[in-house]
């Protein structure tokens, strides 16, 4: 058999399948395709707000909270960026520190969403028109944040034994790109839920 003559596989099939094609390039393309797909989901999700509620935003929406949530998330994108750069340059301590900051800021954001929900419950619960849009949109976004946090925790844990270096940083890069995407999604969600009207 043709495949029996090949060298025994040291690692997974995925890595040895295409020796001359850049695995990093394939991974990057795959992630971008996924983000393209997910952005259609967010796009349709945001359009439900305009379809059902127009540009009406209730007065009770807490503007300071919206601003704080946005700032926390944008700040976390900065630390995530620094974590990725550190990983690419093999700076282990920098990677761990910045990943940890990112995780903490992300967790703070989730707490903020909890406060947002608690406030929203008293003014526009999920079975009202605006509540439907608000809880669904922030809930789906928070779900993305939580998956991002889990992924960050995995690369943080894996990075502890110093495995990311100049030649091996894809997991860190991939997770950070995803984190940026989740932040960018919020940049569209924030005006849609807090500012229009």
């Amino acid at each position: 058999m043709a495949f029996a003559a090949r060298a025994p596989a040291p690692s997974h099939r995925e890595e040895r399948a295409h020796p001359h094609k850049s695995r990093l390039g394939i991974n990057r393309l795959g992630l971008w395709l996924f983000l393209l797909s997910d952005s259609v989901f967010f796009g349709v999700l945001l359009s439900t707000r305009y379809y059902l509620q127009g540009v009406r935003t209730p007065e009770e929406v807490s503007q300071p909270l919206g601003l704080v949530l946005t700032s926390v998330l944008l700040l976390s994108s900065l630390t995530a960026y620094r974590a990725e750069t550190s990983a690419v340059h093999g700076n282990q301590a920098g990677f761990r520190r910045n990943t940890l900051f990112t995780i903490l800021l992300g967790a703070l954001f989730i707490v903020g969403v909890g406060v947002e929900w608690a406030l929203a419950f008293s003014h526009f619960p999920p079975d009202t028109g605006y509540g439907t849009v608000l809880f669904t949109t922030t809930g789906i976004h928070a779900f993305h944040v939580v998956t991002g946090l889990i992924a960050l925790a995995v690369v943080f844990r894996l990075g502890k034994d110093g495995r990311y270096s100049k030649g091996n940083f894809w997991p860190a890069e991939g997770v950070v790109k995803y984190w940026h995407f989740v932040d960018v999604a919020w940049v569209f969600i924030y005006p849609t839920l807090y500012l229009v009207g």
């Binding site: 059902l52 079975d127 009202t128 028109g129 439907t132």
Partner: peptide
């Protein structure tokens, strides 16, 4: 499951939204 009102016309829901999506 969660009691939202996407398709409950009494609360501003609209079944046409679903048909479009």
């Amino acid at each position: 499951v969660a009691g939202t009102s996407f398709y409950n016309a009494a609360e501003g829901g609209n079944a046409l939204l679903y048909e479009h999506v």
